[in-house]
Amino acid sequence: MSATWKTFKPYALITPQTLVFLLFLVFPIVMIGVVSFWEFTGYSMVPAFTLDNYQGIFTSDVTFKTYLNTFKFLGLVWLATLLIGYPVAYFIAFHVPKLEWQILLFLVCTIPFWTSNIIRMISWVPLLGREGLVNQVLLGGGLIQQPLEFLLYSDFAVVLGMVHLYIIFMIAPIFNSLMRIERSLITAAEDLGASGLQIFKEVILPLSAPGIAIGSIFIVTLVMGEFVTVRLMGGGQSASVGKLIQTQIGSLQYPLAAANAMVLLAVTMLIIVSVLRVLDIRKEL
């Protein structure tokens, strides 16, 4: 009895989460995959096996342009979150001595998540709008003659909105890996004659690379599927794959949306695999 139990115990223990995993992750994705081969008329969908949905995606230059635009957002957001997030994480990890302060500063980074989309959307206007604070300061300072329109409802605004929202996902893993760096390594490097820049390049950067990798994976998955920020900050005029899928779902074109979702899933996985090829994150897990 007890021997049998010992054999089955590990299986018994993993069964619940396996079931949850299968039911709420694998099954829905499989369903989306199945639906992506269905036929649909303007009004309804019919179980079938057709490659038309995929053919439509791969032959349309809308797909190409939309992916291009999504990659553009991804690239810019990734770069901005890295360039802003790294110094922030560095500052919190190395220049904020007390844990309480570190936690407090982290909470500050999560503020964008405390507000609803609508509040956020509304609150950008007084800052970036045509008569917003930024334009007024620039106009008042005589730096520009016409208000800058690109500040809001533009690709710039989309990137700004996403960076604002997602930067915590870059900061947190980088902070984590920075905190794991033994301070004696930095002293040792100093002792061996490394300058501040050399210490960063030779010790801190390579040791925080796994954090950058994890942060990048977060950013990739978040930005590739983005549609809310794209719509709100882009004023509905910016395209992303997520938004394209949303428009199709809104018009009840489920099979087409499902096919797009499958392609998006594959593309996102591909990017993540490439990131993992470059950077080893096992140490962090």
């Binding site: 809308v62 394209l244 428009t247």
Partner: peptide, 19 residues
């Protein structure tokens, strides 16, 4: 309206957004 060419409309609309 919901048009007969609803599917095509949505496709073209996405094209407009992506343009």
């Amino acid at each position: 309206s919901t048009m007969k060419e609803n599917t095509y409309l949505v496709q073209k609309w996405n094209e407009l957004i992506a343009s």
